[in-house]
Write a protein that binds this DNA or RNA. Structure first.
Lengths: 138, 138
DNA sequence: TCCTACGATGGACCTAGTCCAAGTCAATAC
DNA sequence: GTATTGACTTGGACTAGGTCCATCGTAGGA
């Protein structure tokens, strides 16, 4: 986490209270907050922080590759700070809970050349859907 | 296409001009329209059709399993009528063009039990990202 | 300590999508 | 062919999520 702040500073990021708070909120495993949730938690620590700043900061973290956007369930994007460990997502279709998972094999190699239509493919995103233990009974 | 209309009628769908038009607009391979695009094309054929009806109809087609929602690029959901042939998507990160692709292997089996956290996993969605031939030069 | 360009603010604005009360009409019954 | 009725459609108001922008504040270098 503070290594995140270090990395950012090293990249010439100007460090402000707001950015620090957003980076701190996005810390830990299996964290997949919406922008609104990030705003709420950031506001708890720094009441004057504005919505625009949270969106700006999230956008920057994403384009720096420190955080990935996940569009998994519902309308709002979620932000996953676990960007340096390649992983996929397992989503409960009932309650929307997200877990990070690490499937075996490389899904990129599953796509034969004949199915690439001349695209240069560089990334794969896999979302598993099902029911979490809590919702399985429904 | 008209088999789609037949199937729907067979399931007790009340056939109206609006529903017919929406179903007709969503016809063909590699069709991935946004709700707004569906509305535009439907309006061209049936000027009085309303936005709410397009959304309602799309929602019904999705819950009947005739159409799948794709969240691939940009904000708006896209609707893919090719629901009866299992397939995945290849998206150009530049222009957003989507192709249907058929990777080898079953991605479901790539997720070991130890990574399922008690979830009953029933579905996988794979999105390949890269650049299409037109955008590769950029 | 001063300067200044980068960042933060908040309020207006936009897009995608949902909701609802009222009106319409497809399908069934006669 | 007509009557009936409940499912379907309409349009307009509303909401959520997100973006934009002019102005103000401040981190960090000189």
């Amino acid at each position: 986490m503070s290594d995140l702040l270090e990395r950012l500073r090293g990249r010439g990021w100007r460090m402000t209270a707001q950015r620090r708070v957003v980076a701190e909120v996005l810390n830990g495993d299996h964290v997949h907050l919406t922008a609104d949730e990030v705003l709420a938690r950031a506001t708890a620590r720094l009441p004057e922080i504005s919505r625009a700043t949270v969106y700006n900061t999230l956008g920057e973290l994403v384009s720096l590759g420190e955080v990935v956007e996940v569009t998994a369930h519902g309308r709002a994007k979620r932000y996953d700070p676990n960007a340096h460990r390649p992983h996929q997502h397992l989503v409960c279709s009932e309650c929307g809970t997200i877990r990070d998972v690490h499937p075996g094999g490389d899904p990129l190699t599953d796509l034969p050349d004949s199915e690439r239509f001349g695209y240069t493919v560089s990334e794969v995103e896999v979302t598993y859907r099902g029911h979490c233990p809590d919702c399985a009974g429904l």
